[in-house]
Computed example of a mutant assay.
Amino acid sequence: MTDALHPFDTLTPDFIIDAIEANGYLCDGSMLALNSYENRVYQVGIEGELPLIAKFYRPGRWSDQQIQEEHDFCYELVEQELPVVAPLRDGAGNSLLRCDGFRFALYPRRGGRAPEFDNFDNLLVMGRFLGRLHAIGARRPFQHRPELDSRSYGHDSVELLLRDFIPAELRPAYETLARDLLVRIDELMAQPLDLLRVHGDCHVGNVLWRDDTPNFVDFDDSRMAPAVQDIWMLLSGDRLEQTRQLAEVVDGYNEFCDFQPRELRLVEALRTLRIMHYSAWIARRWEDPAFPKAFTWFNTPRYWSEHILELREQFAALNEPPLLLM
């Protein structure tokens, strides 16, 4: 790589085609960059066959063992007939491929549309498939992939933002609020939790709805976490709407795996950690040229003011009673 600060600069079309053709495919020259920033993902045309999805991993983020563990989890789910888009293996059985210092994986293209989570029937179906996924995820722990915890998602994020990004005039307000939030989150996360292998980032963009079935993609953030991590992102609206949505998801979930209602106390804590982590994620990647282009609104006084307001709303939510099952 020519520039350690911008490792993806060498991912030219010719490089991508050479990497894929070295694995036995003949590219037809068509290529589409997909909406991915942490890694680089492309749809690449293949002569006489359906296109492939090529995912080039960000150097330094995951170890080989952590990536392989993600792949193996996907294969385990597919073997149990879960609708998961798993990476393809080469003739030697390898799914983690290499080309000139880059690690990448190839996936079949799976069509589908965005799920409608305001449809209660869809939520029931999602609950069933998540119950099946978690029943398998609970069989054994990850050995190499991390846990979702308040240290990495919360404390580390706040420390980074305070050190390098929060404007001086907003620093006292942010620091006081963030510390109060983390005290409350630490209290909630310190209580006994049942951790299992989860998708980790189960939002609408990582589910393709096809033939009344949710197809799960992008297990890049898969880790050990409480089951509710894959459930809370399906919920939206006011408290009553979320309660009704939750009832549908859990009804389907309980057909295959027992949901623990005590985990509902974690919903707003996990939401707050995601907000903190998201801002810190953009900050950590700010030297990647793709980020300033894609997130032009980031790191402005207005952004940080709105971020602080969002965290204040979360502080209020953390002090409300948790959602209850109907």
Results as ranks from 00 to 15, higher is better:
1 M>H: 15
4 A>P: 12
5 L>Q: 15
6 H>R: 15
6 H>N: 15
11 L>Q: 04
15 F>Q: 05
16 I>L: 08
17 I>F: 13
18 D>W: 07
23 N>Y: 07
23 N>V: 04
26 L>S: 12
26 L>H: 08
35 N>E: 12
36 S>K: 14
40 R>H: 11
41 V>K: 06
42 Y>R: 05
47 E>Q: 15
48 G>V: 08
50 L>P: 05
50 L>W: 11
52 L>T: 07
53 I>M: 10
55 K>V: 04
57 Y>P: 09
57 Y>V: 09
59 P>L: 04
59 P>I: 09
60 G>V: 07
61 R>P: 11
62 W>K: 12
62 W>N: 08
64 D>G: 15
65 Q>D: 13
67 I>M: 08
68 Q>M: 15
78 V>F: 07
79 E>P: 02
82 L>G: 11
82 L>F: 07
83 P>Y: 02
84 V>Q: 03
84 V>T: 11
88 L>A: 08
97 L>M: 10
104 F>S: 05
105 A>N: 06
105 A>E: 03
111 G>H: 07
111 G>R: 00
113 R>H: 12
114 A>N: 12
115 P>G: 04
116 E>C: 14
117 F>C: 09
124 L>D: 13
126 M>R: 04
127 G>I: 06
129 F>C: 09
130 L>D: 02
134 H>I: 06
135 A>K: 14
139 R>K: 15
141 P>D: 12
145 R>F: 10
148 L>C: 13
149 D>Y: 08
151 R>N: 15
152 S>Y: 10
155 H>M: 07
157 S>R: 04
161 L>I: 12
161 L>E: 08
164 D>G: 07
165 F>D: 14
168 A>D: 12
171 R>S: 13
173 A>G: 01
174 Y>A: 02
179 R>S: 09
182 L>G: 06
182 L>P: 07
188 L>K: 03
190 A>T: 06
194 D>I: 00
195 L>M: 13
195 L>D: 10
199 H>F: 00
202 C>R: 01
202 C>E: 02
204 V>S: 14
208 L>E: 05
209 W>R: 05
209 W>D: 06
211 D>A: 15
213 T>Q: 14
214 P>Q: 10
217 V>Y: 02
223 R>M: 15
226 P>V: 11
226 P>W: 05
227 A>W: 03
228 V>P: 06
230 D>Q: 09
231 I>F: 00
235 L>A: 03
236 S>Q: 11
244 R>H: 14
246 L>Y: 10
249 V>R: 03
253 Y>Q: 06
253 Y>G: 03
254 N>T: 08
254 N>R: 09
256 F>N: 13
259 F>C: 02
262 R>F: 02
266 L>N: 04
267 V>S: 00
271 R>K: 01
275 I>V: 00
276 M>C: 00
277 H>N: 00
279 S>A: 03
280 A>F: 00
283 A>M: 02
283 A>K: 00
285 R>G: 01
286 W>P: 01
288 D>H: 02
289 P>K: 00
296 T>P: 03
296 T>E: 14
297 W>D: 14
299 N>C: 08
299 N>E: 01
299 N>I: 03
300 T>C: 11
303 Y>T: 08
306 E>M: 12
307 H>A: 06
309 L>K: 01
310 E>K: 08
310 E>D: 10
311 L>Q: 13
311 L>Y: 09
313 E>A: 01
314 Q>A: 05
314 Q>T: 02
315 F>D: 01
315 F>C: 02
316 A>L: 05
320 E>L: 00
321 P>A: 05
324 L>T: 09
326 M>P: 12
